[in-house]
């Protein structure tokens, strides 16, 4: 599912033409899109919103831009702003602006919300997250919870509604690279579980289930596996339709910093 979606994104990018990367023969990778998302999250989301539709008449996720045809046009706007509008210039390098464009292009092929539930109530959702859902056993929201699962403090500001829905209803459908679970067995039989932070030919870097950063040397491991199944439970049957709406409305409301 993840790969399919990314393939679609990359094809979409190919169809749009890629002058920004053409000179050096690069393509766009999922990591590029992730890095673009980080920039979008830190610099664009306050005005444009996670779905890119908060400014009247501007729908970034549509893949169509009134004042830009090519990626280079978009880069110019990102770097120089749009005089006479609220769009300010941004001090981005060409590389950073290109990553941002990669993310903007990927938005048009991301999933749209398909769920038709009752209206949700964020306050009830908060209570469910902190009690019945036991979400804070793995996740962190603000000061509460742990770091073994993804941080939800800003989840409503950095993930689109459809993505949050998918995570609750089909957690393994999309495991983002930054949330990849890993399991390893040391030669003495000790089991280690955690989240993959990095890897190379000889080592793995993980945040283990106790919240400790550590390197594992493959030569010392009996085996290890990067899991394609999320450790997160499926909440489809755990929450009623109303509860699911409440939880989603709460998560969407989490826009970050205190």
């Amino acid at each position: 599912m993840v790969l399919k979606r990314l393939h679609v994104s990359i094809w979409a990018l190919a169809l749009f033409g890629l002058p920004l990367f053409a000179q050096e023969g690069h393509g766009v990778t999922p990591a590029d899109i992730q890095r673009g998302l980080l920039i979008y999250t830190s610099s664009c989301i306050n005005c444009h919103g996670p779905d890119g539709d908060l400014i009247s008449g501007v729908t970034l996720a549509s893949g169509r831009f009134r004042r830009a045809q090519s990626d280079n046009d978009l880069i110019q706007i990102i770097q120089k702003g749009l005089p006479g509008t609220a769009m300010p210039p941004g001090a981005y390098t060409d590389d950073q602006a290109s990553l941002l464009v990669a993310y903007l292009r990927s938005m048009s092929t991301s999933a749209k919300s398909t769920r038709n539930g009752p209206p949700g109530e964020p306050a009830r959702g908060k209570a469910l997250v902190e009690s019945k859902g036991q979400c804070l056993n793995c996740h962190r929201i603000g000061n509460l919870g742990t770091v073994t699962g993804p941080d939800l403090t800003s989840i409503g500001g950095i993930r689109r509604l459809a993505e949050i829905e998918t995570s609750l209803l089909d957690p393994s459908a999309e495991i983002r690279p930054e949330n990849r679970p890993v399991r390893a067995t040391v030669k003495d039989g000790t089991k280690i579980a955690g989240t993959l932070m990095n890897q190379d030919t000889y080592t793995l870097q993980i945040l283990d289930s106790k919240g400790k950063l550590r390197s594992l040397y493959k030569a010392n491991l009996r085996d290890y596996e990067l899991l394609k199944i999320s450790p997160m439970p499926n909440f489809k049957d755990k929450f009623t339709a109303q509860e699911m709406s409440d939880v989603i409305s709460y998560l969407v409301s989490l826009k970050g910093l205190r």
Partner: peptide
């Protein structure tokens, strides 16, 4: 950047972009 002090491998990075 947070990295392994023995082998230099990166655990995570936080790339803050100062305002213009």
């Amino acid at each position: 950047v947070a990295l392994d002090a023995v082998n230099g491998k990166i655990f995570w990075t936080y790339p803050y972009n100062p305002a213009p």
